[in-house]
């Protein structure tokens, strides 16, 4: 990348699912994101990497307006989903967050049964006509999240009684249940052990292509394993965005190279 932050940066083949143009984010007077333009494609998993405080999570949270919940946060620029401006006054934010689901660092199942955790979204969005259809959505979502086999005999147990890795997959099943177009994952494995992490990575591989996936991760090997496109952020700017294979074997920018080879500090 030739530092073309103001130009469109393609996300690869196919039309972009989400586009961002000249996005700036301010927390009060402090600018957290500086003029970032990125496209997110349906066919790819996109990874955001960078040191703590580089703005990658802040930027991720712009994609489904999670920053709205922070009173001093201000977002400028343009972010579209399927060509629609998500910051337009007519955008229904609840609807937006169903279309652009999110999975957080720490698993946060509702203190309800496994079944109700997954059924919650379809219920409030009226996605199921009856019990059979809802059962069907719950089963399909849990299967896609790779959890069905482990919980099918105890769907009425509490979601919080599951292990950390299972809880995280439950959260992914919950996001999947409302049939989103995009799934944002903010360090989904940082609280999990290696086996649970591997299961999430396998799950990402399985559902890739069905949803556009954006993952923020501190684990560079994970970014290299699960993504096809990688964006490197530093001090609120997008330093480099390109093919994952290229970023991790032959990055263009010195800053990217220093970060991924463990030379910054």
């Amino acid at each position: 990348m030739t530092n073309s932050k103001n130009e469109m940066i393609s996300a690869g083949d196919g039309s972009p699912k989400m586009t961002t143009r000249n996005v700036n984010v301010f927390y009060g007077d402090k600018q957290a994101i500086n003029d970032v333009s990125i496209d997110v494609n349906m066919d790819n998993v996109t990874a955001f990497i960078g040191p703590s405080g580089c703005g990658k999570s802040t930027f991720l949270r712009c994609l489904n307006r999670m920053n709205d919940t922070i009173p001093i946060a201000k977002v400028t620029g343009e972010i579209t989903l399927e060509g629609e401006d998500i910051y337009s006054p007519t955008m229904d934010v609840v609807q937006l967050r169903a279309r652009v689901g999110m999975v957080f660092q720490k698993p946060n199942p509702f203190p309800k049964s496994i079944y109700d955790n997954v059924a919650y979204g379809p219920r409030i969005h009226g996605l199921a006509a009856g019990k059979d259809e809802l059962d069907n959505i719950v089963e399909t979502s849990l299967q896609r999240a790779g959890l069905w086999g482990e919980v099918k005999d105890r769907l009425l147990d509490s979601g919080t009684a599951l292990s950390g890795g299972q809880q995280q997959r439950l959260c992914i099943a919950r996001a999947i249940a409302v049939d989103p177009e995009v799934i944002l994952m903010d360090e989904p494995c940082s609280a999990l052990d290696p086996i649970a992490t591997a299961k999430i990575e396998e799950l990402i591989h399985e559902i890739r292509g069905r949803y556009a996936i954006v993952i923020v991760t501190h684990n560079m090997q994970q970014a290299a394993r699960v993504s096809q496109r990688t964006a490197f952020f530093h001090l609120g700017t997008l330093v480099e965005y390109g093919e994952t294979s290229e970023i991790f074997t032959n990055p263009t920018e010195t800053q990217t190279r220093d970060y991924i080879t463990g030379r910054y500090g």
Binding site: P51, H234, L235, T254, Q255, R257, D258, Y259, T261, G262, R263, Y264, G265
Partner: peptide, 14 residues
Amino acid sequence: MSPTGTEHTVKAFD
């Protein structure tokens, strides 16, 4: 983060 271009944070790697 300041790119040094030379040394790794983990010295044993170097």
